[in-house]
């Protein structure tokens, strides 16, 4: 830790680098959950999907030697989880929030079960692009060494915003999310749209998991996720179901998550566990600030039932 070279500037730099590093899974999970929730359904099981995606990606990368094949495999696995969730939730009397909790436990259990043999072997990592090549300072080089999935996530954010606002697919999704009856009147099958939206959401979440196991922290173990899948659901509410909002909120969360390690790297060690709780506390504060007991959150899809 040569933070003495740039002194206390190491803290904001480390937080920036950490924000980019830590936010990437949030970006993918929250974009996926945005797609699902825009269709009028909530999937709380993304935590399980994320961990299962992390395991699948790591296992495939170990076996084939290609991290990108791992990401593709994780997407397929995540889409299957989404399909199961979407398929069950179309039945009457089934509570999508409860199914989400069950799918979370199922996904975690299955990932731990199938992932046991892959805790030891090392998988190839996803690549990163060294944007900090111009600087002689190792801290700046490390901070600007940006992973490719972050850039893809940023591109997807704006692509999704454009699709939602300007295309027929986006319109269909928004109509289904705002009113099941209106969708039926337009000749759209709301069940099918929600099924596809949940599957796509699952695939996105699994990419977030693949990032965890194949880039940062970059290994598969049973404690790989610390609730990113669930925090992303809260983050989507904060972001008002807007992809660009999700991206910015993810960066904010990433920064909060990087606070503890950044302070530790310059020698502040007391209260380490409390800094570790910062992203959760921040999520909670944001949820309290953005919710209201009487009116629905502005921008919320009409068919979504967050507080039944």
């Amino acid at each position: 830790m040569e933070s003495t070279a740039i002194g206390l500037w190491g803290i904001p730099l480390a937080i920036l680098a950490g924000a980019i590093r830590v936010s990437t899974p949030f970006i993918f999970v929250s974009l996926g959950e945005t797609i699902t929730e825009r269709s009028g359904r909530i999937n709380l099981g993304l935590e399980g999907t994320l961990v299962f995606g992390a395991m699948t990606a790591y296992a495939i990368a170990v076996v084939t030697g290609s991290p990108w094949l791992g990401v593709a495999g994780a997407m397929a696995a995540g889409a299957s989880f989404g399909l199961i969730h979407g398929f069950i939730c179309r039945w009457p009397k089934v509570n999508d929030i409860a199914i989400g909790i069950a799918m979370m436990q199922f996904g975690l259990g299955l990932a731990f079960f199938l992932g046991k043999p892959y805790i030891q072997p090392a998988a190839p990592h996803l690549p990163s692009i060294p944007f900090g090549f111009w600087s002689g300072l190792p801290q700046i080089q490390a901070a600007l060494d940006i992973n490719v999935l972050f850039l893809i996530g940023a591109a997807l954010t704006f692509a999704l915003r454009w699709v939602l606002a300007n295309t027929r697919i986006g319109l269909t999704l928004r109509v289904v999310g705002d009113s099941t009856d209106a969708a039926r009147a337009m000749g759209i099958d709301p069940h099918r749209v929600r099924l596809v939206a949940t599957a796509v959401g699952g695939a996105f979440a699994a990419v977030g998991g693949a990032y965890l196991s194949l880039y940062y922290p970059g290994a598969w173990n049973e404690g790989i996720s610390s609730g990113q899948g669930l925090m992303a659901v809260a983050l989507v509410i904060f972001a008002r179901w807007n992809p660009v909002g999700c991206f910015l909120a993810a960066l904010l969360f990433g920064g909060a998550g990087a606070l503890g390690p950044a302070l530790q790297s310059v020698g502040v060690t007391s209260g380490y566990y409390l800094f570790y709780a910062a992203p959760y506390a921040l999520t909670l504060v944001i949820m309290i600030a953005t919710s209201s007991p009487n009116r629905p959150v502005p921008g919320m899809p009409g068919a979504l039932s967050l507080t039944k």
């Binding site: 709380l44 929030i97 909790i101 610390s226 609730g227 669930l230 925090m231 659901v233 809260a234 509410i237 209260g271 380490y272 566990y273 409390l274 570790y276 709780a277 959760y280 506390a281 999520t283 909670l284 949820m287 309290i288 919710s291 209201s292 007991p293 009487n294 967050l306 507080t307």
Partner: peptide
């Protein structure tokens, strides 16, 4: 405040575990 209890209880759970560790 109309905060979804499922998500808030889980977030509070992570915070509680951090407080315990501290």
């Amino acid at each position: 405040r109309g905060v979804n209890e499922t998500i808030s209880s889980l977030l509070m759970s992570y915070i509680a575990i951090a407080v315990m560790n501290q």
